[in-house]
Nucleic acid binder design. Structure first.
Ligand code: FES
Ligand code: FES
Lengths: 158, 158
DNA sequence: CCATACCCGACTATTTTTGTCAAGTTTTGC
DNA sequence: GCAAAACTTGACAAAAATAGTCGGGTATGG
């Protein structure tokens, strides 16, 4: 399990945009250059980010991209959702897998592993939802250096 | 980001082994058949699980595999570590990426995104470490149906 | 009207993952 | 001892996912 470069690059672009929080828009080439990324790939990513309403664009000469929201109201999760269609996808979301495994594995029609994977998904999304782009700007300040353990919210009873 | 089938299959095998918690070992073919998985792939996975000390093997006729530890002392995380070399890998762990991105991105030699990805890693590993194979056996009993939010352990001050 | 820059789908290339093969080694039962 | 069962292993092939490119379009400011 690994973050895709799409995500890394996309997030880089967003951070770059957020840093330039001036009035006039930054062009895709500018961003690509400053982040040392392939220009056409950046365009593609920004295009998708636009469709999800994360960035706005201004066409024509002197045009470019702008953040659509304030960095403090934009989480890493939002960007994941826009780019990958979610940071985390269930393995059996694809039709082929679902019929091959999820259903037939256990008698009552449920893969006994399913809850682990769905819980994992919500843990991931939930964490990424706590990280704002704002926090990324102040480099390192958000990093506590401590472990960030997961606390099971409901161990006892049930 | 998605769980690999390696993991899904591997975990299935482990659960199958745990269910058969009798004295004599189960052969790879048995497991493959009961879980409807390709035999040779199962063999390969079990082999790796063996090297990490998750399962034991008995060679020769009537041989097969056994869990090396009690299901209550075996977490999903252990299995991830054995199979994928960890459930989660940092994108810039590979040499090529590291020199291309992680280092040069910010002035002090640190990608400003790095802490998100490392924290994400610890959140994932930490969660998977709370789920024992034991819990998987009692199908559904561990599933609370509720959300399992991530609570940032240290928001204030710092 | 032209240079800039967004828009977009189709396409290729690369890498990763998945799965197979074939040739071993070890042990049991007869 | 020998044959059959079953683990061991690395190399290889197939498939899928990801990364990245191309080329043509459209809008806009000067
Ligand atoms: S196949 Fe759906 S969770 Fe296992
Ligand atoms: S490249 Fe290492 S975290 Fe961004």
């Amino acid at each position: 399990m690994k973050v895709t470069t799409q995500l890394e690059y996309g997030l880089c672009c967003i951070v770059a945009l957020a840093r330039l929080q001036v009035g006039d828009p930054a062009s895709a080439s500018d961003i690509a250059q400053s982040e040392k990324l392939p220009r056409q790939y950046v365009e593609k990513l920004l295009c998708r980010l636009k469709r999800s309403g994360i960035v706005r664009s201004v066409r024509g000469a002197k045009g470019g991209y702008l953040l659509a929201r304030h960095p403090s109201e934009l989480t890493v999760r939002d960007i994941c959702d826009a780019l990958d269609g979610g940071a985390y996808k269930l393995i059996c979301e694809e039709e082929s897998m679902r019929t091959k495994r999820c259903i037939p594995v256990s008698a009552d029609g449920r893969c006994s592993l399913r809850f682990v994977w769905t819980e994992l998904g919500s843990v991931i999304n939930s964490y990424l939802g706590t990280v704002t782009v704002d926090a990324l700007l102040s480099d390192g300040s958000c990093h506590t250096g401590k472990e960030t353990p997961y606390q099971r919210p409901c161990t006892a009873g049930v």
